[in-house]
Design a protein around this nucleic acid. Structure first.
Lengths: 82, 82
DNA sequence: ACTTAACTTGTCGAATATGTCAAGTATGAA
DNA sequence: TTCATACTTGACATATTCGACAAGTTAAGT
């Protein structure tokens, strides 16, 4: 399990975001409202679905809205055997 | 310190990567050689310098080459007071 | 001074992320 | 059924990433 495919990474990131968002009881619209920086539900939906390879700044904005560290969103398993 | 500017985030991410890379004694060329996935030193340099808003997949590839979890690269301080 | 290695930076083209808008789906309540 | 809320998806325009190549810079060693 040395390196995951791109689609797998994106899916995991998206699942992380959706899981945290639901745990906190937020809707996608809530997230958009919580941050001054521009972002919209279309993109959030696509990221949660793993359909888009988000930039780190977009993920940072989402982490701010979710009130979690960016690193929590980026929590993808790691294997030492590269 | 509720939300950092885009340029600040990118700079921190870049510093993380460069610090880890140097700690491990790798050159940028080393990194490129360590992963089968295509990536080049031009982009690594720009990311380390905070000049480019990298996608999560690119950062993942770099994390693989650095042999650290993606979340370590994405370690940006978090403030509860959003 | 010269060479080499490591890194930076500019440019180019192709691919794609993002915001915006519109339309569609799903669910639940009245 | 009707309405509202939440989410998804497609299309479009704009901006930017990313790989590539070339050229420039910096630092260390001989």
């Amino acid at each position: 399990m040395s390196s995951m495919k791109k689609s797998e990474i994106l899916k995991i990131i998206g699942q992380n975001i959706k899981r945290i968002r639901l745990e906190k009881g937020f809707t996608q619209v809530d997230l958009v409202g919580k941050i001054e920086a521009r972002i919209d539900t279309t993109n959030i939906s696509r990221i949660e679905k793993g359909r888009t390879n988000a930039t780190i700044h977009t993920l940072y904005k989402i982490s701010q809205a979710l009130e979690v560290p960016l690193s929590e969103i980026c929590d993808v398993y790691f294997s030492e055997s590269v």
